[in-house]
Amino acid sequence: MNLVKSHDTHQESGEDNADALSQYLSFQIKGESYAIGILSIREIIQYGRVTSVPMMPDFIHGVINLRGAVVPVIDLARRFGKSATQINRRTCVVLIELPNEGGENETQLLGLLVDTVNEVVDIPPEAVLPPPAFGSRIRSDFILGMGKLADDFIIVLNVPRILSRGDMEWVNQLDHSALKADAN
């Protein structure tokens, strides 16, 4: 199936990681539950001081200092087309490691801003259903599948797709519009 396949490309052996493969971190954004496979998650930190970067798309929340490394933080709510995340005590940054596009062995560290982190859930591969063609609350291409829990469905996110650079590099376009705005 879709999910297993996509993980297999990242992991050397499906066997050894069988347990990890079916484990997902669930979290909440604007009252909705989402899940990400735990293999790509590096750590979860409490929301700290974020420096905003001007002239970036609104879903680029800013950058944080992670033990000396400067890491961008993405506001998933904004990325899903909702209003900006309201920061509170329970706000977390989920740090994930993605293979760098183009780079062979390089990885890129990114933070995802979420309202609250729930738990690690176990969803066996056969319980992950293909994404619905329509009717979901977020873009269907952001969805990897629908995870079937005991009495509910959870949206398993297609993280690489959400953070795909082709989509996010707005900088140059913004650059020109910012200039025009300024010049006028």
């Binding site: 420096t51 950058v63 944080i64 400067v70 961008p72 596009e101 900088v171």
Partner: peptide
């Protein structure tokens, strides 16, 4: 500190640094 590929081509910003306070 480099800002990474996400911020490539950002006008007016060449990079980042970490202040004594730990802030970027």
């Amino acid at each position: 500190k480099p800002l990474g590929p996400l911020f490539k081509g950002l006008p007016g910003i060449s990079g980042s640094t970490i202040l004594g306070s730990g802030e970027v």
